[in-house]
Write a protein that binds this DNA or RNA. Sequence first.
DNA 1: GGCCTTGTTGTGCAAGTGTATAAATAACCT
DNA 2: AGGTTATTTATACACTTGCACAACAAGGCC
Lengths: 223, 223
Amino acid sequence: MPDATDPAPMNERRKFRREGEERRRQDLIEATLDSVAEYGLQGASLRTIALRAGVTAGLIRHYFPGKEELLQEAYTALVDRMTEQAKAALVMDDASPRQRLAAFITANLNAPIIDARVFSLWATFIGRASADPALARAHREGYLGFRNEVEAVVADVLAAEQHKPDATQLRHHAIAINAIIDGLWIEGCLAGEMFSPGELAAIGIKAVESELGLAPLEQFLEK
Amino acid sequence: MPDATDPAPMNERRKFRREGEERRRQDLIEATLDSVAEYGLQGASLRTIALRAGVTAGLIRHYFPGKEELLQEAYTALVDRMTEQAKAALVMDDASPRQRLAAFITANLNAPIIDARVFSLWATFIGRASADPALARAHREGYLGFRNEVEAVVADVLAAEQHKPDATQLRHHAIAINAIIDGLWIEGCLAGEMFSPGELAAIGIKAVESELGLAPLEQFLEK
DNA sequence: GGCCTTGTTGTGCAAGTGTATAAATAACCT
DNA sequence: AGGTTATTTATACACTTGCACAACAAGGCC
């Protein structure tokens, strides 16, 4: 027979805590990215997202005008995080340009940037970019920032090597190097188990140095 | 008052023609790819697809067990078409290995392989590959076929140049070249208007030749 | 403590989803 | 031509979706 002080009343309203606006928005965005990575844009419903964030679906409308805006903010957050991590590898003040370039490549071709979840998100969102101007703009901004960073490092490296490329050559180098990093990134994310640790970075560094016409450094020569 | 031979009766059943099974399946797959490219996996409903194919939604179930199978067959068809087009550029019997490699790169970095719609489809589907084994397998097969082609051409080129790379070096060259092509392909699809015609192919050929340590051919030297 | 604001829940709803199935009809066979 | 088959349409159904809104309660303020 039921206890007089039933500890599990059936029709009790759910308890909750009021979190700050910043925290709730971040949690919801993170839950959105998780849901999209796991179920795709089709399976990421407001109820799924809310469940993952530990709230009920109605709350989302309190912080975002609609689902579309939530997805846009989530994608922007993803792009920001990716480019931020990538560029973080460039802040090595006491290193030679060439070392900085190598570190940049290495950082981009290892965890956490080589990551199946991030790739899945990137592909899912960018697949909609051609039909969604807002997504297209978010991508374009992140991409151009990335390529400008590449171009700046490449210019440093070539300057240190006494090369004097004109603007077109420099641009072409940046485009090619960007392609090498992107292409290897995709291969690593999609088939990470096919490569031994550090292998992708080694391939990338060699390919980039060939592109720039640099002789291999001693420390990377095979012994 | 209504005409006795009313030319527009309201509740008339829709006229239709019986097409062959092969034709109907192909039409439905094409309509699926169109819908996914335009509206994404979320917006590509059976009714949308059927409308585009010129049939009613119920018919889809007559040719496919369910929506999932239709999407899988559509993706397989897409991958097949992409790899087929790419490899078609390799059948030049009377050309030198190096010319064949250059033609391969050129073909992959121009229309119709550089195409926003194809890219959108590729990204949309591959974004689900990590969560859908069937999609992952379709991708893996197409990708490995592509990379094997690359590796074979690279081996031909290096043999003609009297180089003797070991298996690891050959594999690394193939991975790097594959990355260059993929990366430039993405850049071209996403921002085609940023490149002049033939520019991507020129960048790609130069990058690949640098990767392989080949001296530029006269015909490609700047005048 | 009691009140007030507003973050949060819960319910409701119209629209759309994939699937199942009955009814109709185009095309083939003899 | 008439009968048969199976392609195609049309309708029904249970379910999910995004969104709207009313009720509630957590936490700050006096």
